[in-house]
Amino acid sequence: MARAALLVLADGRFPAGGHAHSGGAEAAVKAGRITSAANLEDFCRGRLHTAGLVAGALAAAAVLGVDPGDLDAAADARTPSPALRTAARRLGRQLMRAARAGWPCDELDALARRFPKGAHQPVVLGLAARAAGLGPDDAAYCAAYESVSGPATAAVRLLSLDPFDATGVLARLAPELDRVAVTAVEAARRVPDEGVDALPAASGPLLEVGAEWHAAWPVRLFAS
């Protein structure tokens, strides 16, 4: 199996639905909390250490062979916002389609049958990485990166932000992304012995509440 499969999976053009989601950036922009590259960076940093860490650990645990049903339930408990649970399942279902096209295998087919309306996206991401022959660290990197690349891209569209500034934000977060991926994998490796409670549960209060606020808008650009 080829390590370069990680590039395919992490590519922003991978057709798995991410382009329609802002990762909470649209709500934060409307609330006046993201106005510039500087507070976009702070937003992304906060998301990386909360949603990104949790997603990375879930994905890594899925690569390690932890039961996807247990991981999906753990993701539910770590996602209080029903709007975010719905978004995560929709994205999981969309990713499943792309993953089955890219790396067809029985394990992905079985998950698609078990969760016809979608499992949480990081769980599917982990199984996709596993199907592609990638390791838990690869999956954690991919999930953690998506947690910041989505809002950064959305902010460019929402604020007409200079795309070079947004790219600079992502580049500056890279060292922290490394550390989050390491922490996520360490937690995932404890799951076989300690159960899913060993997974991190870091949360950003305004991400959850903001997602509910956003879901209630009659007019918006992004699905979440």
Partner: peptide, 26 residues
């Protein structure tokens, strides 16, 4: 036996970055 809520809040000096930013407590 089934977790319906599992969430951790970390804040203050030394907490992971961004805790007081637009995704955290703002």
């Amino acid at each position: 036996g089934r977790a319906v809520l599992d969430q951790e809040l970390a804040c203050g000096p030394g907490a992971p970055g961004g805790w007081d930013g637009p995704a955290g407590l703002a």
